[in-house]
Amino acid sequence: MYDFAYHKPTSVADAVKLLAEDPDARPISGGMTLLPALKHRLNMPSALIDLSGIAELRGIRREGDALVIGAMVKHFEIATDPQIMAAIPALSRMAATIGDTQVRNRGTIGGSLANNDPAADYPAAALALGATLITDRRQIPADAFFVGMFTTAMEPGELLVGVSFPIPEKAGYAKLRNPASRYSMTGVFVARGPKGVGVGVNGAAACAFRQKEMEAALAANWSPEAVAGIRQPADDLNSDIHGSAEYRANLVTVMAKRAVADAG
């Protein structure tokens, strides 16, 4: 790792100020993605702004028909928090499958959403549930937030503060893990709620996306059979040593079926 300065602010305002003052500074939350990148010398931030001292970024609270989860809430907490387990059990189940025990005890939902790894789990859930991403300066609907591989709609220096998930009637998740990294090769999150039906897909393409044909089919008939015949076009999907685009296209259908079954 290269040398960097280290700051540990105690408020979102101070963190944002630090980021504004130094364009090469980076926030660090759980560090489970950023630290390996630093160790491999793939990143050279001038300063790390440690978000772990900011109380505003923690906590899980109910706001009307939505659950608002702070950016610094860890995967482990999402997997085990009674409120989340009651309101969006599929999200808890999803969090329980991320990485390993160590990763779940450090990694955060905010870090994962801000990073927008194509193979990360949460973006599919955020899309399917119609979540709203809350930053230090605005609210961004999930549909507008995930814009491409490792890129989001956030501006440089913008801080993700939390995410608001509308509570669904039903939701389910299924994925096939990459045999090596154990990240998602392809995962599908399905939800039916106040905003209608959402189908979010991760792992298959450069960025998580919504499968709208499946959404329409499930809106008409909420059952695994409704999506079983829908084929995801392979054109824009990822192809690598672990899975071809055609294979991933198949997995979209299979995982969608299983996600609906998981939702019940």
Partner: peptide
């Protein structure tokens, strides 16, 4: 080498 780390080289678990 494409399988140059545990992210791409699968080990049994």
């Amino acid at each position: 080498l494409l399988s140059a780390s545990f992210a791409d080289y699968a080990m049994p678990r």
